[in-house]
């Protein structure tokens, strides 16, 4: 399910902002996956090319 969610996010990057602002409801992924997704998307904010960014822990 996470896989499909990422694919839909990549198809519509404007949904990233909605997701980060909590305006997009996510179904089918766990609480920890949700937390990780928000965190990884957040860590890309200050990068010029988010899709090229690499996120370490």
């Amino acid at each position: 399910m996470l896989k499909e969610l990422i694919q839909s996010l990549m198809a519509d990057p404007s949904s990233w902002t909605l997701l980060k602002n909590g305006q997009l409801q996510l179904a089918g992924i766990s609480e920890v996956e949700h937390r990780a997704l928000i965190d990884v998307l957040g860590s890309s904010e200050d990068k010029n090319q988010p899709m090229r960014a690499t996120y370490w822990f």
Partner: peptide, 20 residues
């Protein structure tokens, strides 16, 4: 690789295991 979300997906998976 960039447009498919490969790095994003695997980064989320990595971070999920790290949070666990």
């Amino acid at each position: 690789i960039e447009q498919s979300g490969t790095i994003l997906y695997t980064s989320v998976r990595m971070r999920t295991h790290y949070y666990n």
